[in-house]
């Protein structure tokens, strides 16, 4: 993994603090999350304390610090979804897989992410699992959806 991080960093030869966010995005794109090692490497490269990088990264919702699960769930919390009950859906998912947004379930089967608007308001409340949309989900229907993914194991 380390060599990959190095090669990403090499794309930013000027090594200035301005490139911190794009760098972190590239690393997450590649690894699916920001590992401790990655943060340390970036810190060394930019001569920036790890605490600062962690502070910046946690400011934005887009960064995660645990690897993705086999199935990555994105729950839309945009206005339309909210009005139609996405809070209940999120709560049900959290209960069902036992983790909160930004985390990965212990068995590694699911990871959860809350996103602003997916841009599919007509399907609200909508969730995406591994990029596949599930429309008009409810607190009830979500259980079955998750069960189906579990059974694929």
């Amino acid at each position: 993994m380390e060599t990959n991080i190095k090669s990403i960093l090499n794309n930013y030869p000027e090594g200035s603090a301005d490139s911190l966010i794009p760098m972190l995005q590239d690393i997450q794109e590649h690894d699916g999350f920001l590992s401790k090692e990655a943060v340390i490497e970036v810190g060394k490269y930019l001569k920036m304390p790890a605490s600062k990088i962690f502070g910046v990264a946690t400011f934005y919702n887009q960064f995660r610090f645990t690897p993705l699960g086999k199935n990555h769930i994105q729950v839309c919390r945009g206005t339309a979804c909210h009005v139609l009950g996405s809070a209940t859906v999120l709560e049900e998912i959290e209960k069902n897989i036992g983790v909160k947004s930004g985390q990965t379930s212990r068995d590694g089967i699911f990871s959860l992410e809350v996103v602003a608007c997916i841009g599919a308001c007509g399907l609200a409340p909508v969730i995406a699992i591994n990029g596949n949309f599930h429309a008009k989900v409810t607190g009830e229907s979500i259980k079955e959806i998750l069960e189906n993914y579990r059974n694929q194991e």
Partner: peptide
């Protein structure tokens, strides 16, 4: 030293070291 910083945002903000 700079071992602590703001972590998270808004009402979730805390001060802590890297990875809290």
């Amino acid at each position: 030293v700079a071992c602590i910083d703001f972590i998270n945002r808004g009402s979730q903000s805390v001060i802590g070291s890297a990875f809290n």
